[in-house]
Design a protein around this nucleic acid. Structure first.
Length: 180
DNA sequence: CGGCCGATCCACT
DNA sequence: GTGGATCGGCCGA
């Protein structure tokens, strides 16, 4: 699971939604959420609801959650059926469909910062929480390999963000990043 | 059925 | 640096 969070670094996430054309970027920061034993996860203590049900699906689907009523947070479900593990995409480096993405954020010139932050990632990619449960093997959202090799030494490991309420689990080194 | 809260971001001082 | 926005889901009554 932690391994998958690391493996996702350097991959490209592409979306092709609403007929606006392909948009995507290289994944540069992720966070792992380790299911029912992880207080920071929505599925902590086997909390199975309509919303979290997506995380219990077979890996390879998107789990998108609406946070603060405004922001869609994009996760990738990573494990077997009934094991609610997910990886939150925290940051991407925009590479595909720059003009479309600029339109989405109402900006003129692309800067890498626009892809930093989970809410921004969804905004750039045009992901809405209604896309929750969407397969990553279909023609709307998918992953591509870049051939980019991320060496273990290049991975920045740290504590997760915004989960102080999770107490001791907040300190787990489940946040991974690379600088490209 | 009502109220509170969250894996956050941005405009504004 | 910071306060406000904003809404679906969950819990308690």
């Amino acid at each position: 699971m932690v391994q998958i969070a690391k493996d996702l670094l350097g991959k490209i996430i592409i979306t092709d939604l609403n007929g606006e054309g392909k948009t995507g970027g290289i994944i540069v920061e992720t966070e792992a959420y380790a299911g029912i034993t992880d207080r920071a996860s929505h599925a902590y203590n086997d909390c199975r609801t309509k919303r979290t049900e997506v995380m219990y699906m077979e890996g390879g689907v998107a789990y998108v959650y609406l946070c603060y009523g405004i922001h869609s947070l994009f996760n990738i479900v990573t494990n077997k059926k009934n094991i609610p593990h997910a990886v939150l995409i925290r940051a991407i480096k925009p590479v595909e469909g720059i003009d479309v993405m600029l339109q989405r954020v109402n900006k003129k010139k692309m800067q890498d910062e626009f892809g930093i932050g989970p809410g921004n990632v969804s905004k750039l990619l045009g992901i809405h929480f209604s896309q929750s449960g969407e397969s990553l093997l279909g023609n709307k959202i998918w992953l591509e390999n870049t051939g980019l090799i991320v060496y273990p030494n290049d991975i920045i490991v740290g504590a997760r963000v915004g989960v102080e309420y999770a107490k001791e689990d907040a300190l787990l080194p489940y946040r991974f990043g690379v600088s490209i």
